[in-house]
Amino acid sequence: MDAIPEDALMEILLRVSKKSRCRCKRVSKEWLNLIISAKSSPLYSSSTTTTTWGLVFKQLDGSMTFCRLDEQGRLTVDDSLLFSYAEDSRSPYTIGSCNGLLYFCGSVGRDLGFKIRYFLDNPVTKQSSMLPELPILEDKPDLRPAGLGLTFDDDDIDASNINNWKLVAFLQDHPNPRPSIKSRGLTISVFDSRRWAWKKTRPARFTDDSDPLAIALPFPPAHLEFSVLIKLPDVDNWDKEGVLWKSEGGCLNYCHVCFKQGLCIWVLKKEDSSADDHIIYWWHKTYSVSMDDLMSMLSSSKDALNRFCPMICPYAVNEELSLL
């Protein structure tokens, strides 16, 4: 059989889905090299930059539904992820993203005894994975997550190896008002993807008074630098009921939610002006949807409006991951 002309094969590999392209890497060295070199193709960048947002909605029966919203405004409900409405009304919570993966935790099923579990979601493969239960210290049964971080190992030969990640959980005794950082009694537990297990928890020790949980919030709404630098996008006089800031993939995401009107997602784009050293920021309106549309997409009744849960997290897909 004749070999497929290289240009044609390149075109083909650029056109298949990301997941398929990832599989194609294993076909042969020629295919792998083509996919690697495809990255510099102008077709590549336009076809693979995706941003997906994870949304969590509270349903009438109290259950939580996880959805993904893509740049084209397509909303897909993930039926495999149904959270229970636990006594902790904030659950699921602690939503963040790193390297294109969304991570969050939530209470699951009655049969699981309202246990809080961690999840990772891959927007490219549209799959979620529930991590094993956190180890609980014998003498501190009330220990619960207070902060969470996802990291990728840089010391690896291939730093972009997305298979090696760690989830770092800060745990604290509950309930605990916010006393000084030293007396908060934080405990750390690390989940290692390669072992697919939590490492033993150990008490956190801090070298200074900095609060790791405060650092975990990249851009609080009133972040001084940004409120001065950049005017907030004009959201047509919407009542502000929920805003969410998140930096990911080199972009600052701003999500505006009004439970009567809908939601609106803006991304702050940065451009290095070639003329001088000035950096130009501008708001790029990515997506907005009315609450009616949202509810019909979710095929939920209008009564659910008031129970719409403001859990929204934007997350971007980096280049390496988009190959998946």
Partner: peptide, 17 residues
């Protein structure tokens, strides 16, 4: 690919799923 190379690529891209 040698088995090792294929395993390596698989590991890089398989992710968890």
């Amino acid at each position: 690919f040698t088995p090792e190379e294929e395993e390596e690529i698989r590991n890089q891209n398989a992710w968890a799923f």
